[in-house]
Design a binder for these strands. Structure first.
Length: 222
DNA sequence: CTACCGATCCCCT
DNA sequence: GGGGATCGGTAGA
């Protein structure tokens, strides 16, 4: 699939794009190796009306990337600790984005595990040798399918941060990019549900079924 | 300038 | 089931 045809897909209405994103691949390619995860959980944010969206305050320094071209990255920091990846969607001027909430690791499991450990050690202010050992042990025994089961974990597993914002996720020359579903992939059974962690948004936004998951997949967040 | 709080995750009880 | 970590965005003084 060409970059232009992918761009056309991501420029369509966001609620049509979200299910299409499931099954696509999140790739981190570098000379040392390749990390690949299958996207299994996403959430749509349809600003500026959507009171759960970062674009609910209109176009600000933070939300500006969402107003731009579809297929580019919007990475934000939550709770002062976790970088979360969105794909900008819809036409230019519509501040829409889709949050990648979970991926199923397919390649580069060791590198993904190492990145999770590195991120966790970096985020802790003070830690003794016992803490380091405890973190290494915990992530060391985490099943591969749970290593990127959550938006903060996706960011950590793929070494993402806000400097990625604005980069073209549809350009395969970029270290971090998206790839189409492999040819011959089976048809997915998709479920919808309410978005998580947005109680602050109130009615009717909390109840919108704008979370999309691959039914039964073991890498979906809990 | 200060105050408040968040699209999360981990640990303990 | 509940609290802490940690910091940037936004609003209001």
């Amino acid at each position: 699939m060409t970059r232009d045809s992918l761009r056309a897909i991501f420029s369509r209405p966001t609620l049509d794009v979200a299910p299409e994103l499931l099954g696509m691949l999140l790739v981190h390619a570098e000379p040392g190796g390749r990390r690949v995860g299958r996207i299994v959980e996403v959430e749509a944010y349809l600003g500026p009306d959507d009171r759960a969206s970062h674009a609910r305050f209109g176009e600000t320094a933070r939300s500006r990337p969402m107003y731009g071209e579809a297929g580019r990255a919007y990475v934000y920091l939550v709770y002062g600790m976790y970088d979360c990846l969105n794909v900008v969607t819809g036409p230019i001027g519509a501040p829409h984005a889709i949050l990648i909430r979970a991926v199923e690791p397919l390649e580069g499991i060791d590198a993904i595990r190492a990145a999770r450990i590195e991120a966790e050690l970096r985020s802790r202010r003070s830690l003794g040798p016992a803490d380091v050992e405890r973190i290494r042990a915990r992530i060391g025994r985490t099943p591969a399918e749970r290593l990127a089961a959550g938006p903060g974990r996706v960011g950590a597993a793929f070494g993402l941060d806000r400097s990625l914002t604005g980069s073209d996720l549809l350009d395969p020359a970029q270290a971090v990019h998206l790839e189409a579903r492999p040819a011959g992939s089976p048809t997915l059974r998709i479920e919808t549900s309410k978005r998580l962690g947005i109680d602050f948004a109130g009615e009717p936004w909390v109840d919108r079924p704008w979370r999309f998951t691959i039914a039964g997949n073991r890498s979906v967040s809990r």
